[in-house]
Simulated assay, not measured.
Amino acid sequence: MTQTVLAVDLGGTKILVGEVTPAGEILKSEKYPSTVVDQRSATEKIKTAIRNYLQQHTIQGELIGIGVCVVGRVDTEQGRWMEIHPGLSDPIFLADELTQAFQLPCWITNDVSGAALAESILGVGQETGNFVYINIGTGIAARVVADNHLIKGGNHNAGEVGHMVVDMMSEDICTCGRAGCAELYASGLGMHNQVLKFAPEYPDSIITIEGEKRVTFQELIAAYEANDGLAKKVLDQALHAAAALTMNLIRVSDPEAVVFGGGVMNDGWFLNHLVTFLNAKTVRFVTKGFRVTTLDPNEVALKGAATLAFIMEKGVKTYA
């Protein structure tokens, strides 16, 4: 019988639970209600989701453990969920709680770390042990894998590159307290905010702004292709910021490949334009190229959670 892992991906609007094989095949999955208001409430939602899944579905393989991806800071080796949002910290030994509740060994990691783990085993990691994974969605985060090691940092906070300054002259203040951070310009939320900022300068723009509704990336692309001035301003700014961020990470970590994930990157439009902003000398050692992940963005964290469990069950902490 094939060994499997019960994988859990905690998102802002849903919890995805599924049984996953070592090859990354999801045998069955189910979505359940989520919350990320605080760690205790989210922990209880995770427990409820796992219970419901086990009641609703027959386990098909030999279940060896539980792997969980959550938002925020995670100490994987200790199984401790340290922080759900910056400044909102209620450390919980989540792995121990789930082990006691379900009598299965459990391991936890951050969701972007999980995606990088999945890339390490199921994706670009089959070609190189040195790569950068950059997730550009509502926010921006990245993980560096160097010599097959996932860099985690002294406080389990490595990779928060959305707060890397890419415009020294900017007066736009980020939530982190600094000005000119990449997330202000190149993230999904950042681009929306830049649309609001510059809209008065482009009264003839075809972009529709409706109350609290966020302007989507697809709306921006459509307007850009229609030669809309506001869309060109915002997207060119975003591309410059993302390119600067990417090149900074290349200079720091010397990867052979750069892989992009997240909603902004899904259809390849952003990457196809971003590469035209890259300096040839800076990227000359990225011999295995720039690519959008081939792993389904809706499943990559689930596969990452499972990958973590399979790795840790064998006692290998290389990627923890």
Rank of each mutant, 00 (worst) to 15 (best):
T2G: 02
D9W: 13
L10Y: 05
G12H: 09
K14F: 07
L16R: 00
V17W: 03
V17Y: 03
G18I: 01
T21D: 09
P22K: 07
P22D: 08
I26L: 11
I26A: 07
L27G: 06
K28T: 15
Y32M: 14
Y32I: 08
Q39I: 06
T43M: 13
T43V: 07
E44Q: 09
I46D: 02
I50S: 04
R51F: 08
H57K: 12
G61S: 04
G67I: 10
G67L: 13
V71I: 14
R73P: 01
E77D: 13
W81I: 12
E83Q: 15
H85P: 02
P91C: 10
I92C: 05
L94Y: 04
A95F: 09
E97K: 12
Q100K: 15
Q103W: 03
A116C: 11
A118I: 06
E119I: 11
I121M: 00
L122H: 13
G129A: 05
G129W: 02
N130C: 06
Y133E: 02
Y133F: 15
I134T: 02
N135M: 07
I136R: 02
I136W: 00
T138N: 08
G139S: 05
V145I: 15
N155Q: 12
N157L: 09
A158I: 09
G162Y: 01
V165P: 00
I173K: 14
T175R: 11
T175F: 02
C181A: 09
E183N: 11
G188C: 08
G190Y: 01
N193Y: 10
Q194R: 14
F198K: 06
F198E: 12
E201R: 11
E201H: 07
Y202W: 08
I209D: 02
E210W: 02
E210D: 14
E210H: 13
R214F: 08
V215E: 04
T216P: 04
Y224V: 06
A226P: 01
G229V: 06
L230Q: 06
K232P: 01
V234P: 08
D236S: 08
H240R: 14
A241S: 15
A243I: 12
A244W: 04
S253Y: 15
D254K: 11
G261N: 11
G262V: 13
V264D: 06
L271I: 02
H273I: 07
H273V: 06
H273L: 13
H273D: 04
L278Y: 04
A280N: 13
T282Q: 07
T282C: 11
R284L: 02
F285W: 10
G289R: 10
F290D: 07
E299L: 15
G304Y: 05
G304C: 08
A306P: 07
G315F: 10
Y319F: 15
